[in-house]
Simulated scan of single mutants.
Amino acid sequence: MNQAAPLRAVPEPLNPGQITRPDIHRTDRLGEVIHEYRHAA
């Protein structure tokens, strides 16, 4: 499943040149038992 979140498309991979400072958002699910992480746009 390529670690994709359920019911969401797999994101396109980022090139190293696109990342100057990683800005990551975390979403807690299921009472903070499961965490989803994604790069901010």
Rank of each mutant, 00 (worst) to 15 (best):
A5Y: 08
D23M: 04
A5H: 05
T27A: 12
A5C: 11
R26L: 12
G31T: 00
A41L: 09
Q18I: 04
P11Q: 07
G31A: 03
A5W: 04
A9M: 07
R38C: 07
G17K: 10
Y37A: 08
G17A: 15
P22S: 13
H39F: 15
R29P: 00
V33T: 12
R8Q: 12
P6N: 08
D28A: 11
M1W: 06
A40P: 00
Q18D: 15
E12V: 08
I34E: 12
V10C: 02
N15T: 01
L14S: 07
R38A: 10
G17N: 14
A9R: 04
N2C: 07
A5N: 06
A9H: 08
A4S: 15
A9I: 06
D28F: 09
R29A: 01
R26V: 08
E12I: 02
R8E: 15
A9D: 09
M1G: 12
R26P: 01
L14D: 05
D23Q: 11
Q3K: 07
A40Q: 01
Y37F: 15
I24W: 11
H39R: 04
Q3T: 06
Q18Y: 14
A9E: 11
A9C: 07
T27N: 10
I34C: 08
A5K: 04
G17Y: 03
I24D: 13
G31N: 13
L14G: 00
I24N: 14
A4T: 14
T20G: 13
L14H: 11
H39N: 09
R29Y: 05
E32I: 00
E36M: 02
P16L: 11
I19G: 00
H25L: 14
R38S: 12
P13D: 09
G31L: 12
P13E: 10
T20K: 14
P11K: 01
V10R: 02
L7W: 06
H25E: 15
Q18M: 15
R38T: 00
P22R: 09
I19K: 04
L7A: 05
I19N: 03
A41C: 01
P16A: 05
R38F: 09
R21N: 13
G17T: 05
L7H: 08
L14I: 10
A41M: 05
D23I: 01
V33H: 08
L7S: 08
R21I: 00
N2K: 06
A40E: 03
M1R: 06
P22E: 15
R8S: 09
H25I: 03
G31H: 04
H25S: 08
R38M: 09
Y37G: 00
G17D: 14
D28C: 12
R38V: 00
L7V: 03
G31D: 08
A4D: 13
L7F: 10
L30R: 05
T20L: 13
A41S: 09
Q3F: 04
R21K: 11
R8H: 07
H25N: 11
P6W: 02
A4R: 12
P22V: 03
I19S: 05
I34R: 15
L14Q: 07
E12D: 13
L30E: 08
H25C: 15
R29E: 06
H35V: 05
